[in-house]
């Protein structure tokens, strides 16, 4: 993650069209993200925050006219998937594996296994002592922390987080905010959705209000 001083956006998606059921959620909607930017999606339930996040990850059946990553059109979905990390509101925890096995499994998937790193990450999310507990016996907040541990395991340039603050305690929210800030300062970008008011000081952050964006096509910038 090298600091890049360029005007080329990290991600530029043009002409996003998606519908859910019979409802047209987005019609030729444009979204762009600079390197080192935090984008918060706001809007009432059902406005399409999750759909939009899933669309830019490529796991929703949306039509995107052009998807450009660092100025280069995306052609290889596997390589694109390598650049981003998606955390859905389903925490993607394997309930019949232990905490350690869960993280180890995930690092297999992202081809970066280093057992020393795993222990360090477990300590970082504050779950030491639970390594050999089955994930099903952990609380919702602890499960969310396992999911968040992925952010520390994988090296990538874009975090796409769907409701990352859900069921986290105050400590957890603070921890995640800290991570997001340091990630953005090192050149990464974050797109996330939340209902909680979260402040990031000293970061380039803006709020995209989805309900009004359909007519405005751009949210109000805040900084």
């Amino acid at each position: 993650m090298v600091e890049e001083v360029s005007s080329v956006p990290l991600l530029e998606a043009k002409g996003i069209c998606c519908e859910r059921g019979d409802k047209q959620l987005f019609d030729s909607f444009d979204l762009s993200l600079k390197a080192g930017e935090i984008l918060q999606l706001a809007g009432p339930n059902g406005s399409g925050k999750t759909t939009l996040l899933r669309s830019i990850c490529g796991i929703f059946d949306a039509r995107i006219d052009s998807l450009v990553w660092r100025g280069i059109p995306v052609t290889d979905p596997l390589q694109y998937a390598d650049e981003l990390l998606y955390l859905g509101h389903r925490p993607a925890i394997r309930h019949h594996l232990t905490l350690y096995e869960n993280l180890s499994w995930y690092s297999c998937l992202s081809r970066c296994s280093d057992s020393a790193q795993l222990d360090q990450v477990i300590a970082e999310v504050g779950l030491q002592g639970y390594e050999d507990e089955l994930a099903s016996s952990l609380s919702a907040g602890q499960k969310r922390r396992i999911a968040l541990a992925r952010l520390r395991l994988v090296d990538c340039n874009l975090w796409v987080l769907d409701e990352p603050f859900a069921s986290l305690d105050v400590e957890g929210v603070k921890m995640l905010c800290g991570w997001i800030q340091s990630f953005v300062q090192s050149g990464g970008s974050v797109a996330y959705s939340t209902h909680q008011p979260v402040e990031f000081s000293g970061c380039d952050s803006r709020i995209l209000n989805i309900d009004s964006s359909r007519t405005l096509n751009r949210g109000g910038a805040r900084q």
């Binding site: 796991i59 998937a81 981003l84 998606y86 859905g88 394997r94 309930h95 081809r111």
Partner: peptide
């Protein structure tokens, strides 16, 4: 079913290993 409901499969789909292999 279980893995679909838990969101495991979407993480697999996004992973660097080709999905059909998984």
């Amino acid at each position: 079913r279980q893995d679909f409901d838990d969101g495991i499969l979407e993480q697999m789909e996004l992973s660097e290993v080709p999905f059909y292999q998984l």
